[in-house]
Amino acid sequence: MAKEKDTKPMANTVIGSTLVIDGEITGEESLTILGTVKGKIAVAQNLVVEAGATVEADVEAQTVTVSGRLTGNVVARERLELKPESKMVGDAKSPRIVIADGAGFKGNVDMDV
């Protein structure tokens, strides 16, 4: 009945597109979001907000890559990247920030200079 789906071992966390999480996500690994997360996110590795995903949360991660929609303050210890078509509202703090052509962004940028 429950299909065995261990064919593709994935150590990391994926939040699927129909999933809605209201609360706090903390982790020592990478996190990929296709669905909706509201609250707070703190991961030790990479955070990817895929196209179609909605994040309304304060975010802390090593690297943050946004293709979807992110509302909240972001602290990326290494790198923040806003892909084309992404929308971000909030303050960004990271030593390296990449904003692609076509990305939407509103907020403060702090590169620690």
Binding site: G16, L19, V20, I21, D22, G23, T26, G27, E29, V43
Partner: peptide, 10 residues
């Protein structure tokens, strides 16, 4: 290594 506290719907 991930922990969620709150509500999960899907």
């Amino acid at each position: 290594e991930t922990r969620i506290s709150g509500e999960v719907r899907g």
